[in-house]
Design a protein around this nucleic acid. Sequence first.
DNA 1: TTGTACGCGTTATCAC
DNA 2: GTGATAACGCGTACAA
Lengths: 337, 337
Amino acid sequence: MKHITIKDVAKRLNCSVSTISRAFNDKYDIRKETRELILNTAREMGYSPNPMAKRLLKQCSNQIGVVVPEFINPFFPEVIIGIQEVFLKKGYQVLIMQSNESYNNELENVKAMENNMVDGLILSLSLETKNVEYYQNLIAQGFPLVLFNRVSNQLETHKVVIDDYKWAFFATEHLIYQGYKKIFHFSGPAGLTFTQNRKNGFIDAHRKHKLAIDQHTIIETGLMISDGEREMEKLIQNNNIPDAIFAVNDPTAIGAMKILKKNGLKIPGDVALVGFTESQLAQLVDPPLTSVAQPTKEIGRTAARLLLDQIESKGIFVPQTVVLNGRLNVRESSMKL
Amino acid sequence: MKHITIKDVAKRLNCSVSTISRAFNDKYDIRKETRELILNTAREMGYSPNPMAKRLLKQCSNQIGVVVPEFINPFFPEVIIGIQEVFLKKGYQVLIMQSNESYNNELENVKAMENNMVDGLILSLSLETKNVEYYQNLIAQGFPLVLFNRVSNQLETHKVVIDDYKWAFFATEHLIYQGYKKIFHFSGPAGLTFTQNRKNGFIDAHRKHKLAIDQHTIIETGLMISDGEREMEKLIQNNNIPDAIFAVNDPTAIGAMKILKKNGLKIPGDVALVGFTESQLAQLVDPPLTSVAQPTKEIGRTAARLLLDQIESKGIFVPQTVVLNGRLNVRESSMKL
DNA sequence: TTGTACGCGTTATCAC
DNA sequence: GTGATAACGCGTACAA
C-alpha cells in the first residue's frame, strides 16, 4: 500500500508511461482529450510524480538551503523570513537547518543539503568554523553559495554584510560625544570577521578622539545574554565599573543590563549601554537600548536575490559583496546624564 | 565535471559496481584488501554514494521534517532545539520549514517534506489551518506524524501539549487572588484548540469565584506584539481600562505593556498583566512579566521521542497525547497593589 | 500522436 | 569472493 507510480496510472489507462509523463510535462504534442483524461484519472488515483526520481534524473530540486548558527536570538529568524519572501514567490522551497554554533553540525548540515540536491545554499558561519576548505571546494565546483553576516575572507563568493567597522565606530563615537570617558567593549569571540571589524571600529573611534585604551578595556565575551551577565558580574566583583559599555550585540548588552539593575546601578546614570544588531528586544527592555539596527529582512532578501541570480544565470559570475546600510537608534540607555 | 559515481570508481579499479557497493555497505563477503583498496581510491577520487539514488531505492531518508507557523517569537525556535537534540544523536538530519501562519504554505511545506522522503514529520498547525483532511490521509497511510502546541481534535496521532485550560485557570485565579476584579482576556484568534482552552480556563476561574463576565471582557486578538498594542490602544481610547489583563501569550501582553507605559499608566499599579508561554522576553521587560512557563525544549524532546518510536517500531501504534507540566512564574507585573 | 528503450546512481539477488 | 542484472520512478530521444 505504498505510493502510486506512473506505471499504475499507465496500466489503468492501458497506455504507456511516456504518455502519462507527457501529459504531466506538456512539452511534446499530446491530444488534449488524452491529456485531460490522464490528468483526471491521475488526480483520482492520487498520483503525483515522484520528485526524488525526477531529481535523480534532472540533478536539481527547486529547493534552496539555509544554514544558520542558531535561532534563539531573533536575528537569524528575521533574515530567514526575508529569504523565504523572495524564494517562495519564485516557486522554490526553503530548507532550513541550524548548526548550533558547531563546526561539525554545520558541515553535516551543508552536506545534508547537498544530498537533498538543493540548487543553492545560503550560509552564515558558526563560531567554531575556522576551516573553510570544504566550502572553497564547493565554490570551485560552481555550487551557488551565498554568505551573510558571518562571512570569511577566504571564500570568494557572494556576500551580504553591513559595515561593521563603520557602525561600531559611530556607536562608540556616540558614547564619546555623550561625554563618557571610561568606555568598555564586550567584543564577542575573537577571530571572527564581524567581531574583529566591530572591535576595530571601537578602537579607531578612541584613536580619533585621542582617548586611551588599555588591555582591560576590551573584554572577550560570548554572544548570548548569559555571556553578558557573566562578564558584568566579574566587573562588579572586581569593582571595575566603566562609564559606558559598547557591546558586540544586543543580547550581551541586555545581559549586562540585567546584572547592573540587579545590583542597583542606574542605566544610563551609572553605566550607559549600546548594543548592536537591533532586535525587537532593544525597544522592550527598560531602559530602551541604544543599538545599531541591521536591516535583517533586507539582508535576507538581498542574499536570496544574489543566490537566485547565480542559480538562474549559470554563467560566469563575479563574486559580489553587498554592504547594506545600518542605522544607530539612539535610546535612553546611552543618554547623557 | 559533475559528481563522481560508483561507475567511475568501478572503471578506475577495473571491477564491477557491485563490488564497490559491497565495499561501502560491508554486509556481503568481501576481501579485506579489496575493501580497503576501494575505500581508499574512492576517498581519493572524492566519491561518496548518492543519497538521492539510495532514497529512490530504499524509500527512506534518515531525515525528519519540522514545520512550524513562525519563528519570530522565541517559542518555536526553542522547541526545535529540543527536537534536534534527540534526532542528531540518532544520526537523523532535521529539516525545518515555516508556514508563516499560512495554510497554503503549510501544505506546500508538508508536501515538500514528503518529496524529500522524510521518515516522519513534526508539525504545529498555522492559524489559518481549518481543513486537516490532507493530514488525516497522511496518518491513514501510516505516515509518522507528531503534532505539538497547535493541535487538532480531528487528527488521531501523537500529540504534545500542555494543559492550556488548567494553566489559564490558575493564571486567572492568581489575578483574582491578588484582588483584581475587572479582568480582561486577550484571547488570540478564536477557533484554535489552544486559544479555546485558555479562554475556557479564564471563564471557569471566574465562575468558580462567582465573578461576572460580560461580552466585552474577552477580546479577540492576534498573537503578535503589534496585536496587543492595537487592542490596548482601543481600550484606552474608549476609556475602558481593566484592572488586569490575562493575555493568551507573552507577545500580546508585552504589546499591551508598551502602550500602557506610553500612556503613563503604571503596571501593576493601574493595570496588572499576565502572559502565557514564558519566553525570555518575560524576564527582560520592565516590570518583569508574570507568565505561564511552557517547557519548550522538553516539548521538542518529547515530540521527537514519540516520532522516533513510531518510525522505529513501524508496528501498530496507539495515538498518544502527552500533557507536559507548566508553571506559573509570578513576577512584578501582577503583584498586589 | 503514441510507444519503446535507455539512463539517472544505487542496492540486492542471483549466478559463477 | 566477485560480476551481471533487475529494480526504484521518472523524462525523453527515437522509432513507429
